[in-house]
Structure formats: C-alpha cells, structure tokens
C-alpha cells in the first residue's frame, strides 16, 4: 500500500507545472524515503530529477516500493480539478495498475477522487555522478526567470560566464546583442534576495534559451535558484522546495562544431 498526503495540493500542481513542458510521461519511484522522479526530455538534451521526501508529507506510507508510470498530461488534467487549498492524497495498492488522487476541501465538505491508469514505462535510469563544480551561483529565482525571458528575445543561446568579478549572461542574434552582469550582493540582509557566487575556477558555457525557459517554470516552487557549472559538464539548475525536497534540471552545454 502506498499513500502520500499533502496539506497543500498547490505544491504538486507547481511540481507538475515545472516538468510538463519537458516530459510527457515519467515514472514516480516511491519508497520509504519519499517520491523520486528522474527522466530525460525526448531529445535527450536535459534531465529532470525530482525528490519529495517522505518527511515533507503530512502523511506518508509506503509498505513496498512502488513504481508508477504516469502520463503527465492526464495528471495535469486531474490536478486542475483540485482547489489550491485542498489537501491531496495519492494512493495505490501494491502492484496496482491505477493511482487514485483524493482532494479534500479545507472544511471537508467536498471530497473528490480521481483514478488514473498507470503506464508501463520502460525508461532507462541514469546514474548522476558526484561532481565538484567550479562555480555555484545563487540568486532570486524570479530574477533568473526574468533574465532568461529577456535574453531569449535576442538569441537562441545564452552564454553564462562566471568569473571573480561576477556572472555575466550574454546572447546575440539578428537584431543585436544583450549582456546582463550580476555582481555578488554586498551585504546580505535578506537571503532570498541575495546573489551569492562561489568560484574556484572561471567557467564559460553556452546553453539553449528554450531549455532554460522551461526550467524557470519551477520559479514558484522556490524563492532562490542555484546554478552549478564546471567546464564540459551539464549545468545544474536547482530549486529547493521548502520543507520537502528539490527539483534539479541538468542541461547539456552547446559545443563548438
């Protein structure tokens, strides 16, 4: 028996919003520790890794490991039926071929349940090697989203260049070029609003705007985003979801032909 209850369905709605542009279907692996999802997008350019820890749920029970292949379009339809203040409970029997979502309004006056067929997804599972990153940049997630959106107007790629002076985001295209430089916040009063740069070695890498924009769909999950970069390895864009886990996006850099 698997049962996981969240007091706020909005977290699950936001998680789905954050992955549905990249993935059409995905496997949710549930065990004692919580729910994990790891999948590459169709073109194998990016990888999404989601963790929702068991202790972040209002109630969590997982007697045996459960693997649930879900169509994310169908799951989105179902979660649209939940009010933001509703609690949501996901339930599945061992070896079941369906999952049930139960939504309860705050005053318990409305209870709805939606049963969804599970899919047999034979997806390969990739191991993510431990990596020491040369640069990590933390900044307000809304600022990152704004920059990606602004720069996307000019070009298809964004060059991220991190040096001891700060971090620079650049792009160029038919109409011209654009650069945004961010320096580390001088005095940190509010951690959520700070830009914090840690650099061992300078790194410059180029990434596809479209994917960075997909990742920023996670903005509402976290006030801060962390970018981790090293030469010739995928960029990691991490949003920590308060009290429950994280969503990490890995993006392969563009390379000289």
């Amino acid at each position: 028996m698997f049962e996981a209850r969240l007091l706020k369905s909005s977290i699950l709605k936001k998680v789905l919003e954050a992955i549905k542009d990249l993935l059409t279907q995905a496997t949710f692996d549930c065990d004692d520790n919580g729910i994990q999802l790891q999948a590459m997008d169709n073109s194998h350019v990016a990888l999404v890794s989601l963790l929702l820890r068991a202790d972040g749920f209002d109630k969590y029970r997982c007697d045996r490991n459960v693997t649930m292949g879900m169509n994310l379009g169908s799951m989105t339809k179902i979660l649209k039926c939940a009010g933001d203040k509703d609690t949501v409970t996901m339930k599945a029997q061992d070896n079941a071929d369906t999952v049930t979502f139960v939504f309860e309004s705050p005053n318990q006056e409305k209870v709805s349940d939606y049963e969804m067929k599970l899919m047999n997804l034979d997806l390969e599972h990739l191991g993510i090697p431990e990596t020491e990153y040369s640069c990590t940049i933390r900044m307000p997630s809304a600022e990152f989203a704004r920059m990606c959106r602004d720069l996307s107007q000019f070009g298809e790629s964004i060059v991220i260049s991190c040096t001891k002076e700060g971090v620079k985001f650049s792009t160029s295209g038919d109409i011209g070029s654009a650069n945004i430089k961010l320096a580390q916040t001088a005095s940190i009063d509010k951690e959520d609003e700070a830009v914090i740069i840690e650099m061992d070695e300078p790194v410059t890498l180029t990434f596809a705007c479209q994917y960075l924009n997909y990742f920023t769909k996670a903005t509402s999950l976290s006030p801060q985003v962390q970018l981790s970069m090293s030469a010739d390895v995928p960029l990691v864009v991490e949003y920590r979801i308060p009290d429950i886990g994280h969503i990490r996006y890995y993006l392969a850099p563009k390379i000289e032909e």
């Binding site: 194998h44 990888l47 599972h125 890995y250 563009k254 032909e257």
Partner: peptide, 13 residues
C-alpha cells in the same frame, strides 16, 4: 554551436 546530448554524461544504472 551544436547541442550535445545529456545522455553521454551519465551512466546507465
């Protein structure tokens, strides 16, 4: 510039 695949960076488990 060409887009590399992410698959080659990870190991299949």
């Amino acid at each position: 510039m060409s887009q590399s695949s992410i698959r080659s960076f990870f190991t299949v488990t």
